[in-house]
Amino acid sequence: MSRKKKDKSAQSTRQLMGIDSVKDYCIATRMGDLVFFIIKPTNISVLPDSSISARIYALLNVVKGQAEIEMLALNSKESFERNKTFYQERQTCEELPAIRRLLEQDSTHLDRIQVLMASSREFYIIIRLRKEKDTDVFPYLSRIEQSINDNGFTTRRAAEQDLKRMLGVYFEQNVTTEQYEDYDGDRWVIVGE
């Protein structure tokens, strides 16, 4: 095994992702702390053109008001394409009509689930903190959050579980876990025994 592979295999998942730690309000990296503001999406498909233009202008105001803003859009839905492909391949090989019908029903069910989840998008505004003093961080973040809200967006700062869920969706499309652990199997550890 090469030295690079050995070094990578010895790293934790967080190290491989470039994350030092997940704090209660940010993700700490060597390039600065990343603070995430969750933006509640607006269904613009039902808005008139003038309202869409106003929303774009409001977003422009948010972006130009803060030089260090980054944005992230996540598709927080699971993909069933492999499952559907498996059902279709299996259906062509199956000789029993009853099993073929069941495979077809399973494929149809996955289609329905995918349609229901089609609007599962998440949007984040990210602020990278570099050299801010600890005493200045929370007032600074509160001003940014207020600025975003004043421009007509519904937002809140992501907490630790929100950040873990966002990382789960981003890195592995895991949208089903309700509580993320710091360590694998952490929920099964009984303290004091």
Rank of each mutant, 00 (worst) to 15 (best):
M1N: 08
S2Q: 07
K5R: 10
D7T: 13
D7S: 11
S9L: 15
S9T: 09
A10F: 07
A10Y: 01
S12M: 08
T13I: 14
R14L: 09
L16A: 04
I19D: 03
S21K: 14
Y25N: 00
I27G: 01
A28M: 03
D33Q: 07
D33A: 03
D33F: 03
F36K: 02
F37H: 01
F37A: 00
I39N: 05
P41F: 08
T42L: 14
T42G: 01
T42K: 09
L47Q: 13
P48R: 02
S50A: 13
S50I: 15
S51Q: 15
I52T: 04
S53N: 14
S53T: 14
I56P: 01
A58P: 05
A58G: 06
L60T: 15
N61E: 15
N61M: 14
N61S: 13
N61Q: 15
V62Y: 05
V63Q: 07
Q66F: 10
I69R: 00
M71I: 07
L72E: 05
A73F: 02
L74A: 02
S76R: 08
E78N: 11
S79Q: 05
E81C: 00
E81L: 11
F86A: 06
Q88M: 13
E89D: 07
R90C: 13
R90D: 10
Q91I: 12
T92V: 11
C93Y: 10
E94F: 06
E95V: 04
L96P: 00
P97V: 02
R100H: 04
R101K: 15
R101I: 12
L102F: 12
E104L: 14
S107C: 12
H109W: 12
L110W: 13
D111T: 11
D111Q: 12
D111P: 06
R112Y: 08
R112A: 11
I113L: 15
I113P: 05
I113F: 13
Q114A: 15
V115S: 11
M117Q: 15
R121I: 12
F123G: 00
Y124W: 14
I125W: 13
I126H: 07
R128T: 04
R128P: 10
R130K: 12
K131I: 05
T135M: 08
T135C: 14
P139A: 08
Y140Q: 04
S147W: 08
F153R: 01
T154G: 10
A158F: 05
A159N: 12
Q161N: 06
R165I: 02
L167V: 05
Q173L: 10
V175M: 06
Y180W: 15
Y180L: 10
G185P: 00
G185A: 09
D186I: 06
R187K: 13
V189Y: 10
G192Y: 09
E193W: 04
